[in-house]
Design a protein around this nucleic acid. Structure first.
Lengths: 112, 112
DNA sequence: TATTTATATAAGTAGTCATTTATATTGATG
DNA sequence: CATCAATATAAATGACTACTTATATAAATA
């Protein structure tokens, strides 16, 4: 697998608010699935799904204790990376996602 | 817009090999669309599409010179961020994208 | 002004992924 | 062993987006 594809993969894994929230909630702790569910507005199966995605990418690891499964960050440095991103990425208003919001035709005088 | 949503947005923008390759090709230079097309295996409209996504997120900015439009990185620090990511992210084999590859049922003895 | 080159936009399509709903598995305990 | 609580999986669906093909715009030049 090419380096740029690995990058792409991880960006994709991280490009989901729910997964980001889970990562930030787990933080440096060990959190059971039910804790994560309670903390979030997601259904339990949805949380499990996202945890699986994170685990498949080795961003979290698990530890069973009786009926509970605890998740923790494989490498808490991921939190620093997120922090870096928040700092360094442009803070200008985003043109509505991928499809820009309606605007007049270009000959009206905007800069496109 | 919540901070975590901004994060998500940028991760999504970066979660595409073609866009990553464009960013890395532009590097610290000014590159015309046609240069980028030649350097890649993409069609011209596809390149334009990706450039628009990058521009909408203020990751690149443009400069017209006659018939040419030159794109450059708004902030070359993005290159450092990508470098950091490559270094810091886990290098274990990824379980095939989001859907894990076939494996035996769990009672066969694997660790799920 | 007609033509050519460089770039952007539009519409359509296929594939992917987040989410929901329903069900299965696993471990503990009565 | 039956039941309950915790978690995982499966199937179905809707939304989104990368990509293609076709066309439009914009600048330069004949």
């Amino acid at each position: 697998m090419e380096e740029v594809e690995r990058l792409q993969h991880y960006f994709q894994v991280l490009s989901d608010v729910n997964r980001l929230r889970i990562i930030k909630f787990i933080d440096k702790e060990k959190r059971s699935v039910s804790e994560i569910v309670k903390n979030s507005s997601m259904s339990q199966p949805l949380v499990s799904h996202h945890l699986k995605v994170l685990k498949n990418s080795h961003l979290v690891e698990t530890q069973r204790e009786g009926p509970f499964v605890f998740y923790q960050l494989t490498n808490p440095k991921i939190l620093d990376i997120l922090g870096l991103f928040e700092e360094m990425l442009p803070k200008e208003n985003l043109v509505s996602d991928f499809s820009p919001m309606f605007c007049c035709p270009s000959w009206w005088g905007n800069s496109n």
